[in-house]
């Protein structure tokens, strides 16, 4: 998968979640369910294409991941920590105290789950450049996965 498509996938995952919130607020949860499903589906694809870096793997499987991939995964997790810190502080200082109803808290819970489970994957998918073979039409690690 090319870098532009991967970036599109990242944007689609989080935009559909935000849109789902807006639709649920205006028209109810039932109307927003396709967007929630789309967000979940794109998150699954995002997780699948970045699995080659070892995210979500068991310890025994991690031994098979090469050194470069391991380093990229660790760097992505380290960068995710900084992003998550900022998001959590914003959430505690601003968003969480105003979530009064059970529906709003449920929406924030699914948002937290989406963010913490896809943030390193999104950073990897966003930043990894296209390999030269991708332009030749040769199969790459991303297209194989």
């Amino acid at each position: 998968m090319t870098q532009s498509r991967r970036r599109l996938l990242v944007v689609a995952t989080w935009t559909s979640y935000l849109l789902a919130g807006a639709v649920a607020y205006s028209y109810g949860r039932f109307a927003a369910s396709p967007l929630f499903l789309a967000s979940g589906a794109t998150a699954c694809v995002l997780t699948k294409i970045t699995r080659i870096y070892g995210l979500g793997m068991r310890r025994a499987e991690l031994a098979l991941v090469d050194e470069r991939m391991t380093q990229m995964r660790t760097t992505a997790l380290a960068r995710s920590y900084g992003v998550l810190s900022l998001l959590l502080l914003c959430a505690v200082a601003g968003w969480l105290p105003v979530a009064a109803t059970n529906d709003q808290q449920q929406y924030l819970f699914w948002g937290a789950l989406l963010v913490v489970s896809t943030l390193p994957n999104a950073l990897l998918a966003w930043s990894e450049p296209d390999s030269p073979a991708e332009n030749d039409g040769t199969m790459t690690e991303f297209s194989r996965s």
Partner: peptide, 30 residues
């Protein structure tokens, strides 16, 4: 390398704590 490993571990800890905290907020709020 030590820094990145520590931040990666910290991310895992905070991610799990965030999910547990979010679930608690949702379940126990009412």
């Amino acid at each position: 390398a030590v820094r990145d490993r520590a931040m990666a571990r910290a991310y895992t800890v905070v991610a799990v704590a965030t999910i547990i905290g979010g679930a608690w907020m949702w379940i126990a709020a009412d």
